[in-house]
Design a protein around this nucleic acid. Structure first.
Lengths: 131, 131
DNA sequence: GTGAATGCAAAAGGTTTGCACCCCC
DNA sequence: GGGGGTGCAAACCTTTTGCATTCAC
């Protein structure tokens, strides 16, 4: 049951660390497939699941039906563009205090929250505004 | 292209209005199938999609891989139990102000946010605490 | 050498869709 | 009667999984 290192897992992790967007399994696969033609999609999924279970990466379910992955596990929030679907990191203060608000009239135990902001990203805003 | 009423759509909508949990398409289907054995799952999905496109119901993607539906379209928040998967309405004040926080250092246009709180629901908390 | 990891392909969900038939206006 | 809605089943997509093989320790 001991974890063994694998070239594939390292490829996947470092690919992810090198990107600020939040690629899907398929994007990761097609990119890495070029430098390692034997790579299989199942391996990509297995490692993404493993890494996120270990807490080394984040699995983002932004609601577009496809999982996105993020190597930045620090607390931060995401914005999803409803035009182009891109997922962007937000530089903002913590809003953890909303959990207190949520817990005031709730009997269970609130351990966390998932928040996605959506709207039009800078690039799409520019296009829409263009004269 | 004009919308015609359909017995099935009305069944679905009123079933949904009669529940405070947030059933999945399959739960809706199996329940209504009993009073209308000819009902098909495709029809349920088509109508749920139609109703949510019209804004008459909400499609909740809570991250468990299955869509949940809610006839209450008023602004409110949801809690998802990580033990039993139940989705519960939260009685809480608006946290729309988080959008201002999010927008401070962001160039795009933020139009909304989706927030799910997660943790242990009242029922599961009780079980876990039981001596 | 042992068992974890891979590659391949099949399977498993959940959701959508094509098509012939039905029903509402 | 025309066109939207339904039922049925097949198709779709993303993700998971079984199994024989390969690789790390």
């Amino acid at each position: 049951m001991a974890l063994k290192r694998s070239r594939q897992r390292e490829m996947i992790k470092s690919f992810l660390m090198g990107r600020k967007d939040h690629p899907t399994a398929d994007v990761i696969y097609s990119n890495l497939k070029q430098q390692d033609p034997n790579l299989s999609l199942g391996t990509v999924y297995r490692n993404l699941t493993l890494l996120s279970d270990m807490g080394e990466i984040l699995r983002l379910r932004v609601g577009d039906g496809v999982d996105h992955f993020d190597a930045d596990t620090s607390e931060h929030y995401h914005f999803v563009c409803t035009e182009c679907g891109s997922v962007i990191d937000l530089d903002m203060d913590s809003i953890d205090s909303i959990m207190e608000t949520a817990g005031e009239r709730f009997d269970g135990r609130i351990r966390g929250h998932i928040t996605y902001f959506y709207g039009t990203c800078p690039a799409c805003t520019r296009v829409a505004t263009k004269s």
